[in-house]
Design a protein around this nucleic acid. Structure first.
Lengths: 345, 345
DNA sequence: AGATTCAGTGAAACCGATTTCATTCAATTG
DNA sequence: CAATTGAATGAAATCGGTTTCACTGAATCT
């Protein structure tokens, strides 16, 4: 069943030339007489020959391959970002390994090791952990060792103790815009829902939220800042907590759009209208945000720019060019119908 | 910056043994004296050495790598399926190349070729085209040539003229269940919305729909069977067409859940209530189906089983074991609130 | 004790491409 | 016409592992 591999030697023999000449035809790195060329091309097509890129990579010490490490390809934020990055990588001649870790540290190590062994030219790391747990620190150590050999670019995240190139969304100004929007809509009691402690993007958003609120003299009620996760389900859970509060905020900023969706769903179920009773805003502008009723006001991530920049920086590092250590991608506010002006009843 | 690669020779020299012995330690394929072993392991750890799997693959003629070709990782159906399959592949020791074609035939060829050159051990093809266009036929020819060298498993799709192993959802019985449900709910005028001609899963569903309707003596009004696409946006478009019909069906089956969401969104916008005025059902049971109001009645794809079976069949083919030519994965009906009993007003 | 066995190890070939260096042969030049 | 140049090609080394085969020396058997 399985056909024997055809090699450059077989082609050479049949065309009465040396393997070197066949190689010259394949790579186009040197001149070959037209008639020799034709002979060789004919044989190549006859056998539908394709060169073995493992052999080539072994020699050149580059595989034209990059690895994507991310928590969950099923999350719209990641799938969109991967889609954009991968398309751009393809344009530059790179094929991508997908490493879906499901936030399982065993998988992460397994993948990291596998990528190194497979000689990827670079790694894009989506996510980021800044916990002080043992496993996280171990993983950070592992990552540092990998980075001695393979360039790594962090996207929207970082790892404590790891000094890496980073491309990230301007989450600070995003959160600031959201707070300002809500304040302009006369909200004074604002909460922050979702995300997880120890994930860098959550931490940045939460910290910014607290800062901006305090700068505006509004202060933050600690019981209005609730951790959850990144999924619709975790939005539902945190909404349940929200409902059980004695005093509730009139508006909430959610860590991302999926959380916002979960929150809206539960609030609606329990008779609270969004935006009439509570204003809810999200983050990311996933494709659902505009479709899920009532349409979610959110911060738009520039997926194209984020993905392209990440790949560009990575490829620069691969080619040993200088690259900016940190690139911040601007965001913009997308107004929809999940928040409105607050007025006392 | 870039560290020189450490090889098995460096390790051998430092440990005063031959490369062969180091290799024995790495692979565990032969016995090594404990004290020799310890010496070697120490040196390996000292330099944090990882063997180059390109060299190994070159020799073994297997890369422990499989390629996923799919139209769009951003579509929940594909991202979920990929997530499940990839996790299972990892368990079996395979790493996966992600090839997101965006239905662009140029990309598809590029990827197909690249996967062959990168010596993937097998390919999972998600999607399927049964058009008679020139580019499609060309692509099918290309695919056939690839299949002479690399095992390919088609998931939920096929390609005209290509005789491949296939693992698929029982779309026929899924559609049948939906029709039966609607008929039991007293609907007689039923439409079918979405999907695209030339995509095999659409064709199967549409054909089954027509058959079942005719078997039940209800017949099919051709203007109630409308092509669109697979996204929310295409659902919106097809809903607009639906609205402009002189006589409208009382229930519609959508090609998938995203289309259903688009349809529900537009119907609602134009004042038609789902399910009160029109019943809408979907297909796939993507994670959104249960969250999008009013909750979409749909057919559940068994993603785990679909993904695992596909990988299992592929790995069997890789290992030259027998494998069932066609595996059909059963579906189940998931009742939610997007359809209800029809009663004349 | 001498013959036999066997565990442990090394030398060398190999996987399939690329590339340097040397060589050949035709074309150009004085 | 001999000498020089240069274009086209081939031989062989190389990338970094694995594996076969041969060999050594110690343990076992008669």
């Amino acid at each position: 069943m399985k056909k024997e591999n055809i090699t450059i030697y077989d082609i050479a023999k049949e065309a009465n030339v040396s393997p070197a000449t066949v190689s010259r035809v394949l790579t186009g790195n040197a001149k070959v007489r037209p008639q020799t060329m034709r002979k060789i091309v004919d044989v190549i097509e006859k056998y539908n020959f394709r060169p073995n890129s493992l052999a080539r990579s072994l020699l050149h010490k580059q595989s034209k391959t990059i690895g994507f490490i991310l928590p969950d390809i099923n999350h719209p934020f990641f799938s969109t970002l991967v889609q954009k990055s991968e398309a751009f990588a393809l344009e530059l001649g790179y094929t991508t390994f997908l490493c879906n870790t499901m936030n399982n540290s065993e998988n992460e190590s397994k993948y990291l090791q596998s990528l190194v062994e497979k000689q990827v030219d670079g790694i894009i790391y989506l996510g980021g952990r800044i916990n002080d747990t043992d496993t996280d620190q171990e993983y950070a150590e592992e990552m540092k060792k990998v980075m001695e050999r393979v360039p790594v670019v962090f996207v929207n995240g970082q790892m404590s103790g790891v000094d890496a190139h980073i491309v990230r969304t301007d989450e600070e100004s995003g959160v600031e815009m959201l707070v300002e929007l809500l304040v302009n809509l006369n909200h004074k009691k604002i909460g922050f829902l979702g995300g997880l402690e120890g994930i860098s993007s959550t931490d940045v958003k939460k910290k910014t939220f607290v800062n901006v609120m305090e700068t505006k003299g509004l202060g933050v009620n600690k019981s209005w800042v609730l951790d959850a996760g990144f999924s619709i389900e975790s939005g539902e859970e945190v909404a349940a907590k929200f409902l059980s509060l004695k005093e509730r905020p009139t508006a909430v900023i959610c860590a991302n759009d999926l959380v916002a969706i979960g929150v809206i769903k539960v609030l609606t179920k329990f008779g609270l209208k969004v935006p009439d009773d509570v204003s809810v805003v999200g983050f990311d502008d996933i494709y659902l945000a505009k479709h899920f009723p009532p349409g979610i006001t959110t911060i738009s991530q520039n997926y194209d720019q984020l993905g392209q920049t990440a790949i560009k920086v990575l490829v620069d590092l691969i080619n040993e060019k200088e690259a900016k250590k940190e690139t911040v991608i601007p965001t913009s506010l997308v107004l929809r119908d999940s928040c409105k002006i607050f007025s006392e009843k």
